[in-house]
Write a protein that binds this DNA or RNA. Structure first.
Lengths: 131, 131
DNA sequence: CGGATATACGTTATAGTATAACATAGCGCA
DNA sequence: TGCGCTATGTTATACTATAACGTATATCCG
């Protein structure tokens, strides 16, 4: 587990721990609340700086459609699948898909820098629960 | 031009006009500023309500990674391609791609409701300008 | 040692995005 | 006429994110 990290600072480690302990993405202010429980006063920049460093280290990513953050372990590669019922988030491998999109764009002279692919819906477990 | 619309209210038409006149997505508060220029006092809910109605009518969509809004005409189907240099946004057809992703998810028991696919990078025109 | 630089962090304030809640106005129609 | 519906106005506030400045600590090297 864990790649791309050098040494995490204690703020960064704490944020990462909370994200890994959660079973759904957390917003920055949810994290802020947890940190304020753990120790005393914490201000938003503390959280956002940790999030930025962790994102740059490849350890977390922002789920754009949720305005929230998730550890990369649960979300891995290109495609993020989000259950709107239970809130869980998974990464789905889709190598061919990313490949073919890439070729499409290259053919048009577009130089890709960053891809965001997020799918909302209901996961199998939640569908069963309603059956 | 234009589908899915019933009758637009004047707020909605005004917002849509501004979005169509722009060559890049606009934030809600940019739109708010334009509306305040056009007539006098306008408050955020006026803009957000119009955006919501237009989105439900399929006439615009939110570009999640930009926190901004674009007319569907410029952005069409599944894949949104964004140039980080000039700010323009295009829709790219990618039927096979969406198809195969869909099948992947169905196979896992996941029921899709909404897909967001956004690609950032530099468009061909901007690449030339730097050559 | 002592100073220069770099990094993280604390702290205060503010910018930017979005919605809740309640009041009002106009329209269609029983 | 009076009811219900929809859109709008209006005020306030919630939520998300960053700017700007100061301080502490570590590191490197003269």
């Amino acid at each position: 587990m864990g790649q791309g990290a050098d040494h995490l600072t204690s703020n960064q480690a704490q944020v990462l721990d909370h994200l890994r302990a959660a079973n759904a993405p957390m917003t920055a202010y949810q994290l802020l609340g947890r940190m304020q429980n753990d120790r005393g006063a914490v201000a938003p920049p503390t959280v956002y700086r940790a999030l930025k460093a962790l994102e740059e280290a490849g350890l977390i990513r922002r789920i754009e459609t949720l305005r929230a953050w998730a550890p990369v372990a649960t979300v891995r590669p290109g495609v993020v699948v989000i259950c709107d019922d239970c809130g869980t988030v998974r990464g789905v491998e889709a190598p061919g898909l990313l490949e073919s999109l890439h070729e499409r764009l290259v053919a048009e002279g577009f130089a890709e820098a960053r891809k965001t692919i997020e799918v909302h819906g209901r996961c199998g477990d939640c569908a069963e629960d309603r059956a």
